[in-house]
Amino acid sequence: MARRQATLDLLVLPCAGASATMYLRWRRALPTWLNVVPIELPGRGGRSNEPYVTDFDSLVAKLCDEQAAALQGNFVLLGHSMGALLAYGMALRQRALSRPMPQLLIVSASAAPRCRSPERYANRHDDATLIADLRKQGATPDEVFAHADMLRMTLDTLAADYAVCASFPSRATQALALPVHAWGGRHDDIGQHAIEQWHHETRDRFSVDWFDGGHFFIRDRESDVLAALIRVLSPFAQGAGDAAVALA
């Protein structure tokens, strides 16, 4: 049987301290009508030789310019945690510049803009605090803590990303004229109210999926997450066909 051509591009943004590699498994697990486009941030992965960008607005502007070719046609923006804020910021910038808009914005494990507390990230740049955060979140492999160079890189990346989160603007913005779909973990520190407040950011449809687990349900409940993703994205794809997930 011939492989079905991709009809929907899914641009995905990583959480704080991570790289775009967190989404590489999705390429093998999702149907061929969905083209996963991991967006790498400066200072990590294949861009590790570039300086970090620590200001939210500057990083959003840079990503929109770099991804201009991908930010058109039939596409969706998705981000986890800090990545959700970046995806939201990119949608706002696309609108401000009268550029093509996504069909849908998916925000995962992120408090809505009106629920954010920038002071949460104040004075969180010393190694001891960053290491404590990494251990609490539970997403960092043990070998990272055992390898000095790997740990240094991880801590520097997390500190830079905390600066991005701290610089998230508190200015009021007009709600987006596109649907917004939120994901939350039932045992995440980010509670139900903070997730559901994303409904204020859209003049279109708003919906939520909840998953068992904490902040990294996106990894721990990957099969459930991808099944939910297919269900949500199928209406935006042309000829999606069979939407079965086959995790590698």
Rank of each mutant, 00 (worst) to 15 (best):
L86I: 14
R116I: 05
V76T: 10
S234W: 00
D149K: 13
R135Q: 14
I190W: 07
S110C: 15
L30W: 02
D242I: 15
A16L: 04
P235S: 11
S108M: 03
P169M: 13
Y162R: 02
A70V: 06
Q192K: 14
G79T: 08
W26D: 11
L10Q: 05
F168N: 00
A227H: 11
P51N: 14
A237H: 00
R186M: 10
L41T: 01
A68W: 02
R120A: 11
R95H: 14
A112P: 08
G185L: 09
A246S: 10
A160C: 10
R114Q: 13
F217P: 04
A194R: 05
A16C: 11
T140I: 13
S108V: 01
R93K: 13
S234I: 03
D209T: 14
E196A: 04
P179F: 15
Q67E: 14
G43T: 07
D127T: 15
V37G: 01
G138M: 12
A20Y: 05
F145W: 10
P38Y: 07
V53A: 02
V180H: 03
T129S: 15
A20S: 13
R186V: 03
R114H: 12
L63S: 04
A244E: 13
M153H: 09
W26R: 05
D55C: 11
A182G: 10
R231I: 04
V60E: 00
P179Y: 12
I230L: 10
N123F: 03
F56S: 05
P141H: 11
Q238E: 15
Q94M: 12
M82I: 07
V144T: 12
A244K: 13
Q5H: 09
R203V: 03
L11E: 06
H147M: 11
E50H: 07
I190S: 04
R114M: 08
L158I: 08
H80L: 04
T202E: 05
A29I: 07
D142E: 15
G191Y: 06
F216N: 01
A61R: 10
A109C: 05
A20P: 07
L8D: 05
A244H: 11
L134T: 13
A69V: 14
R135M: 14
Y23P: 09
Q67P: 02
T173Y: 09
A244Q: 15
A96T: 12
A172T: 09
S48N: 05
L247T: 13
H193R: 09
D188M: 12
D57E: 10
W26K: 06
A84P: 04
T202I: 12
L104P: 00
G185W: 06
